[in-house]
Simulated scan of single mutants.
Amino acid sequence: MSALICGSMAFDTIMVFSGQFKNEILPDKVHILNVSFLVPKLRREFGGTAGNIAYNLNLLGGDALPMATIGHDFGPYAAWLEQHGVQQQFLKTVPDAYTAQAYITTDLDDNQITAFHPGAMSFAHTQSIVKKTDKGPVKIGTVSPDGRDGMLLHATQFADAGIPFIFDPGQGLPMFTGDELKDFINKASYVAVNDYESEIIMSRTGWTLKQIAERVDALIVTSGGKGSHIFAKSKVHEIPCAAAHSLADPTGCGDAYRAGLLYGLLRGLDWETTGRVASLIGAIKIERPGPQNHTFTMEQFRARFKKEFRYDLL
């Protein structure tokens, strides 16, 4: 059984400014802003929601199928995916576009200035979901941050095909009205958000968490270091935050967590265990910089799971 992961593939170029933005920007001159930052540290990461979730689900041994639109510059990312055994048959190249990419400059106070170019992501709506692959039927899907039209289309296609999916709006939330968010929720089987995103959804829809949870099989709300809550069948499961050995970089932790959810759903695990799998892989991710630089074997993961939660992951 496969998980069809609809979302973005992107390059993240991350630069570190060895000063503070506040010392370089004059508040009374922002109308003629013209600044330049020397950035001695730079790294380029492979990212995007579909890529990150698929990478993590692949580590867990799941059949991850990322579906996204990519640009003519995707070659290095394709080589990375091939190296790590992530399938690419549902990645569609848009020849005249660049792959989506973010340029992020961070100062010593952890403030960020980001420029994002959607590129090929804007053509996500040219992809249609599939119900079956050469390995069997698609058991579950995700609608994660992507082109606006693509997210709307894929939610409808999943619903029409009878394929349960996780609505994972993430940074795509600002693109949708309250009525559109209600429609996503009514079509989805699961909704996964962080605590800030849950507040936005409640504000735009006028629905409480309880009302949202009543419309889906499960509502998952993460709260960073405070753990997460899974609202399912009138019960709230409190999921502890797994201990991390270090706190290197939170980028991609939410995507890792969602891969853990998919793993549990594909295997039919209970919510207590599914949430703990998601929590642990999020902790493993935060120990390394970038969204796809961590690795483990399932033997190592099960050993750490037992040590952390005091029971076996079967």
Rank of each mutant, 00 (worst) to 15 (best):
A248P: 01
M202R: 11
A188S: 06
H229Y: 14
L269E: 15
M121S: 07
D255I: 09
S203A: 13
A256W: 03
G206K: 05
K131S: 15
L314S: 15
A100S: 12
L38T: 12
P95I: 03
K306E: 15
D110K: 10
S18T: 11
G150Y: 02
L209Y: 01
T222K: 08
Q157I: 02
Q292N: 10
L33K: 02
W80R: 14
Y55E: 03
S234Q: 14
D217H: 13
R288Y: 15
A192E: 12
C6S: 10
R267I: 11
I163H: 03
I201W: 06
L153W: 08
L33N: 05
L247R: 05
S198V: 10
K139H: 10
K131Y: 09
A259W: 00
L247F: 10
I185R: 02
S234P: 11
V221H: 09
A124C: 10
S122A: 14
T126F: 02
S234H: 14
S246N: 14
A115N: 11
L65A: 01
L59M: 08
L269A: 12
H72G: 13
A3L: 00
V236L: 10
Q89Y: 07
A192I: 00
I5M: 01
S36F: 08
V277E: 10
V86L: 04
I140Q: 08
H237C: 06
G275Y: 10
G61V: 05
T273R: 06
A218R: 00
I201N: 07
I14M: 10
K285E: 09
G119Q: 01
V39D: 04
G268N: 07
G71V: 05
A155W: 00
K182W: 07
G47I: 12
I5F: 00
P289C: 08
L269H: 12
G178A: 05
